[in-house]
C-alpha cells in the first residue's frame, strides 16, 4: 500500500476527456477495456457489436512473450507480455504458516494489483478495489485445481501479481503468469494452467467465466476458440519453462566447473 500524498494539497484532479469522439476512438476503447464491461474470457474473441478489428482478424491472437525467474528475491517469478499488456508475477513459498491450527493442505493466497498507470481510467485509489479482489479470487479458483496442495501440509503459498499495463486480456494473462511463476518456484503441479483457464494436456477446463448476454452458439464458438488458444499458449509456456530450466542447469554446471578449477 502507498502513502497518499494527495491528501496534503487537498486538490481534486481529473483526467480531461478527449475532444473528438471519433469512431476510431470508440473501437479502440472497446478493444482495450473489454475486461471491464464484457464477458471476460469469451468476449475478448467475440465482441458484442460486430466491430471489425483493423489490426488483426477476429480469430487471430496477439504475439505473446514470457520469461521466468526475473525477480531474484522471490521463490518463483514470471513476466508476460501480450503485445501491450504487461504483467509481472512473483510467488513466495511454500513457507511455514504461523497459525497454530493444522492444515492438511497448503493455503493459497493470491493478490492481484493494478499499477496506478496501468489503465486509461482515472487513477485508482490506494485501497484494494472490488475489481482487484474479484480478479484475485478468479485467479485462485482457476489455478487451485492444478496445484498439488496436499503435498504441502501446514504451508502457505503466496502469489502476487502486478498489472503494469492493461491493453486487454489482463485476467487471462495473469492466470498464465501465476501458473508460470508457480512452476518456476518448483511447486508441484498436475499441469500448467493456460489462460482461458483450461488444463490442456489433461483436457480439463478448470474455470469458465462468462458475463454479459451472449447467444448459445456464440458461447460455444467462444469456448472452442478459447481451448484452441489455450493449446497455443500452453505450448509456449512449456517451451519457455524447458528453456529456463536448461539455462539454470547450464549456469549451475558452469559454477561447479569454476569451483573445481579453483
Amino acid at each position: 500500500m502507498k502513502i497518499d500524498f494527495r491528501a496534503q494539497n487537498d486538490i481534486t484532479t481529473k483526467i480531461p476527456s478527449l475532444k473528438k469522439n471519433t469512431s476510431e476512438n470508440t473501437t479502440k476503447s472497446n478493444n482495450t477495456s473489454s475486461n471491464n464491461n464484457g464477458s471476460k474470457l469469451v468476449q475478448q474473441q467475440q465482441p458484442k457489436q460486430r466491430v471489425k478489428r483493423t489490426s488483426r482478424s477476429d480469430e487471430q491472437f496477439r504475439q505473446i512473450f514470457m520469461n521466468t525467474g526475473i525477480i531474484s528475491s522471490a521463490s518463483g517469478s514470471s513476466y508476460i507480455e501480450i503485445e501491450q499488456t504487461k504483467i509481472i508475477c512473483s510467488v513466495h513459498g511454500p513457507r511455514a504458516t504461523h497459525k497454530t491450527e493444522l492444515f492438511e493442505t497448503a493455503k493459497l493466497n493470491c493478490e492481484l494489483k493494478y499499477a496506478s498507470f496501468s489503465t486509461h481510467d482515472a487513477r485508482s485509489d490506494y485501497v484494494e478495489s472490488t475489481k482487484e479482489k474479484d480478479y484475485s479470487l478468479i485467479i485462485t479458483q482457476a489455478i487451485i485445481g492444478a496445484i498439488r496442495l496436499e503435498k504441502y501440509p501446514k504451508a502457505a503459498i503466496d502469489i502476487y501479481i502486478l498489472v503494469l499495463c492493461d491493453a486487454g486480456s489482463a485476467l487471462a494473462a495473469s492466470i498464465v503468469a501465476a501458473s508460470m511463476a508457480l512452476a518456476d518456484a518448483g511447486v508441484e503441479m498436475y499441469d500448467l494452467v493456460a489462460a482461458c483457464s483450461s488444463m490442456p494436456s489433461h483436457n480439463e477446463i478448470t474455470q469458465l467465466l462468462q458475463t454479459g448476454e451472449l447467444s448459445y452458439t456464440n458461447i460455444v464458438d467462444g469456448i472452442d476458440l478459447c481451448i484452441d488458444g489455450c493449446d497455443k499458449v500452453y505450448s509456449i509456456m512449456k517451451q519457455n519453462l524447458i528453456d529456463s530450466l536448461k539455462r539454470q542447469l547450464l549456469k549451475k554446471e558452469q559454477e561447479q566447473e569454476q569451483l573445481q578449477d579453483s
Binding site: M1, D4, F5, N9, S73, A74, S90, E111, I161, L162
Partner: peptide, 23 residues
C-alpha cells in the same frame, strides 16, 4: 511545487519482507 507528486510502492511482489496492507 506540489504539482508533481511522487509515490513509491514497495509491496510484497518485490520481497517477502514487505506487507501489502501498510506502507
Amino acid at each position: 511545487k506540489s504539482q508533481i507528486i511522487v509515490n513509491i510502492e514497495m509491496g510484497p511482489i518485490c520481497s517477502n519482507i514487505f506487507s501489502s496492507t501498510k506502507p
